[in-house]
């Protein structure tokens, strides 16, 4: 009886040790390292994820008091394939570029909603989905410069916003 109990204890101990454990360590540079720690005391497998260092990045300025915030963006657009003339292609590409510039302003002012979903089956990524959405109302944006080269239209757009522009 005692022997059976001892064998059972031994089995449960080995089963516990066979579980792989993960350890998340933050490097001195600010990047995250995911360490896979094996039970049999082998050298740990290190996977380094490219994480931006937040300290190095420029922080978006905040709108305070009577201050005005100046935002400049460059929107890009291409003409559809079925255009009748270069003039029509330019007009349509410009419209698309303006929409892109508006979207960029909206992203800067209101921020972006991001949803991510990864489907992993048998330790393999089957489907990776990232959805982003932006919603805003933009007015008084000015087009500074428009260029059209090799089917690509670029629109440089500027906007100055202050606290009074936002609904209180």
């Amino acid at each position: 009886m005692k022997n059976r109990l001892l064998i059972a204890l031994l089995f449960s101990a080995t089963a516990l040790l066979s579980f792989e454990t993960f350890q998340v360590v933050k490097d001195t540079n600010g990047s995250i390292i995911i360490e896979q720690v094996a039970s049999d005391r082998q050298t740990p497998k290190i996977v380094e994820s490219p994480v931006c260092n937040t300290q190095d990045q420029s922080v978006e300025p905040l709108l305070e008091g009577e201050e005005e915030l100046f935002i400049s963006v460059v929107g890009q657009g291409v003409a559809p394939m079925n255009t009748f003339s270069p003039a029509q292609a330019y007009a349509l590409a410009k419209r698309a570029a303006v929409a892109d510039a508006y979207r960029l302003i909206a992203e800067r002012v209101r921020g972006v909603r991001i949803e991510g979903q990864d489907l992993i089956k048998n330790m393999m990524v089957k489907r990776s989905t990232i959805r982003t959405s932006v919603q805003a109302m933009i007015r008084n944006a000015n087009i500074v410069e428009t260029t059209f080269k090799e089917g690509l239209c670029e629109v440089e757009m500027e906007i100055t916003i202050s606290r009074t522009d936002f609904a209180q």
Partner: peptide, 21 residues
Amino acid sequence: KLGLDVQHNEETINAQNKSTT
């Protein structure tokens, strides 16, 4: 200039991007 509502949706599935503005 008067102001337009912007609604942008973007979807990236297996590194293939689709966007609608």
